[in-house]
Design a protein around this nucleic acid. Structure first.
Length: 581
DNA sequence: GCCGTTTTCGGCCCGACTGTTTTCAGTCG
């Protein structure tokens, strides 16, 4: 699938055009890049099916970009892009990551000083060659060096799962201040993106100065970047930056909308405003100088003729068109989960007993928890063999009887997370699989197989009538390991045809399926399960991260089997074919 | 270069900040 490669190339072309000072074209290429990056279908498939005409039907793709896509698909290169790279052989990607450096400055530094890499940029600044240039100065040179230092130290974006607990702690402290009327997070955190750059807070307060003082002296603050009357910016010892803005109550909604983003969503909204003779900014929606809407987000959306759009959808991935057409999904809610189907007990490498897990599940208000212990191939996790699985089942039966006797509407379900071997076989015999309420199967070995083999391996597993769920289907570990080489279209098609459920794994490093894949699966009518993969009961709380991704993937209750009652859930799983038992 | 429930030509997102300039370009979010 070439979508991401093409998106990257068009994004770079946009930067090159920006360098040349070309007007408007960069915007067009940028838009095409964003559309391609978010496109569900393989662009090559679109081309094979409907040719240039099909490509041009993609929003933001016209005659010129369509022919460039064609050129790339047929020859592997785009001459227009190669020409730019030849003329301006700059590592743009690296250089514009330096705060304050953009394409224009990069071009000047290349032409005057021959700077093409981050190292050369640093060298030029250190030897004071930049300050004397026209349009630059001492301060710019200093800032470049500081920004490069920051880049070297920073680890890039943080996992949502690392940041949300920290942000919730700060939020609670701000909420507790008597001077604070209202406070909320904004930005990518509020949209539940899988990784977060920095954290934004917005607050209403009659005494902003006191709130600022409190914010910059929070425990864990190691540096105050800036502190003014209504805005402060700090760094925490974890290396994370946080911003706080105090907003007047009358424009809080417009500010919350604005600072929640995404940028692309906001741009699209402002266009709608313009079409209606209105102007949208962080201060409100204006007709001339009169504010039409500003105090709440709902008001802003309604004044634009749209229903409220939940933050998780605000990525300019079609949510505005859906809102206009009255076809926004009724997203699964954070309270809709009725159980967790992927929990490891101390029968395998997990930390807690079945009774402890059941008690934790009841505290969460769950109706069921599925015990999905590892199976025998996974020695390192003390995976269970057939005999151990059956013994564990007896204990689950015993516990369930005691819950029933106590009048509790809670039960443990008997499952396992079996291993999909290199040939697609499952490491537990069918007779035992058939005695479980559900079977999850996942890949835990041989990660480096080629695309055909890996796809065939998963297809074989899904065709097994005992396999109900595939865990962490793509295998990616954020910032550490890429997806397995798989043909996801084939996987999705077979999942649909065999009625196999795909997991949305809530581990912050996994979030697998991710938001875009969840959306593709949903559109194909594939059912999913949001699971924590908890190895200790504290991790049952990871559910929120999977839920966030499910919402970002437009999932509704009907798409997520553990938002259903235990009866509906069990009925929806595959039945072993007759004669297989 | 793309696009059109006003448009096939004339538009294309907004405001603030910074550092450099004597009125503004570049960058950022």
């Amino acid at each position: 699938m070439k979508n991401q490669e093409l998106a990257r190339i068009f994004g770079e072309i946009a930067e090159y055009l920006e360098m040349e000072g070309v007007r408007f074209k960069p915007y067009a290429y940028q838009k095409a890049a964003l559309t391609l990056a978010a496109l569900q279908e393989d662009v090559g498939e679109v081309y094979r099916r409907s040719g240039l005409k099909g490509l041009r039907a993609i929003p933001g793709v016209g005659e010129s970009i369509a022919s460039k896509i064609e050129e790339y698909l047929t020859s592997g290169k785009i001459a227009y892009y190669e020409e730019f790279k030849r003329k301006l052989p700059i590592d743009l990607d690296a250089i514009i990551r330096v705060e304050g450096m953009g394409p224009k400055k990069a071009k000047v530094l290349y032409e005057k000083l021959g700077v093409t890499t981050l190292e050369e940029l640093e060298e030029a600044a250190r030897s004071h060659k930049i300050a004397p240039l026209f349009g630059f100065g001492d301060k710019t040179e200093e800032n470049i060096l500081e920004a490069i230092e920051f880049l070297k130290r920073s680890t890039g974006r943080f996992l949502l799962g690392e940041i949300l607990p920290i942000a919730q702690g700060v939020l609670a402290k701000l909420e507790a201040l008597p001077e604070v009327t209202t406070v909320s997070t904004a930005g990518s955190l509020r949209r539940m993106k899988e990784t977060i750059g920095d954290v934004d807070f917005l607050a209403i307060s009659a005494e902003p100065a006191k709130v600022m003082d409190f914010f910059v002296s929070l425990p864990g603050v190691v540096k105050v970047w800036g502190k003014g009357g209504t805005k402060a910016s700090v760094r925490l010892q974890q290396g994370l930056d946080m911003d706080l803005r105090v907003i007047p109550a009358q424009s809080y909604g417009a500010a919350l909308q604005y600072f929640t983003g995404s940028k692309e969503h906001n741009i699209a909204l402002r266009k709608i405003a313009l079409d209606q003779g209105l102007k949208l900014s962080e201060y409100g929606l204006f007709k001339g100088s009169e504010a039409v809407a500003a105090t709440s987000e709902e008001e802003v959306y309604h004044a634009l003729g749209l229903p409220y759009i939940p933050p998780e959808l605000r990525e300019d991935r079609g949510e505005i068109a859906a809102a206009r057409a009255g076809r926004l999904p009724a997203l699964i809610g954070y309270q809709d989960i009725r159980g967790d189907l992927h929990v490891h007990s101390d029968w395998d490498g997990g930390a807690n007993s079945l009774a402890e897990i059941a008690a934790a599940g009841q505290r969460l208000g769950y109706e069921y928890i599925g015990i999905a212990d590892h199976t025998k191939f996974l020695k390192i996790e003390r995976g269970l063999d057939e005999e151990a699985l059956l013994a564990r089942n007896l204990e689950i039966d015993r516990l369930n009887r005691s819950f029933e006797k106590a009048g509790l509407s809670f039960r443990l379900l008997k499952g396992c997370e079996a291993n999909i071997m290199a040939d697609g076989a499952i490491d537990i015999v069918d007779e035992v699989l058939a005695q479980l309420d559900f079977v999850i199967a996942g890949i835990h070995s041989h990660f480096k197989m080629n695309r055909e083999q890996m796809t065939a391996r998963l297809v074989t597993a899904m065709q097994n009538p005992h396999v109900d769920i595939i865990s962490h289907p793509t295998g990616r570990i954020i910032k550490r390991r890429d997806e397995y080489a798989i043909d996801l279209e084939t996987i999705l098609t077979v999942a649909r045809d065999t009625g196999t459920v795909l997991e949305i794994n809530s581990y912050p490093e996994r979030l697998d399926l991710n938001d875009l894949n969840i959306r593709r699966a949903k559109e194909m009518g594939i059912r999913m399960v949001i699971s924590t993969d908890a190895h200790q009961i504290d991790q049952l709380n990871l559910m929120i991260y999977g839920l966030g991704q499910a919402r970002r993937g437009w999932a509704e209750k009907a798409d997520i089997i553990n938002a259903w009652s235990v009866t509906d859930l069990l009925q929806s799983l595959k039945k072993p074919a007759a004669g297989q038992l």
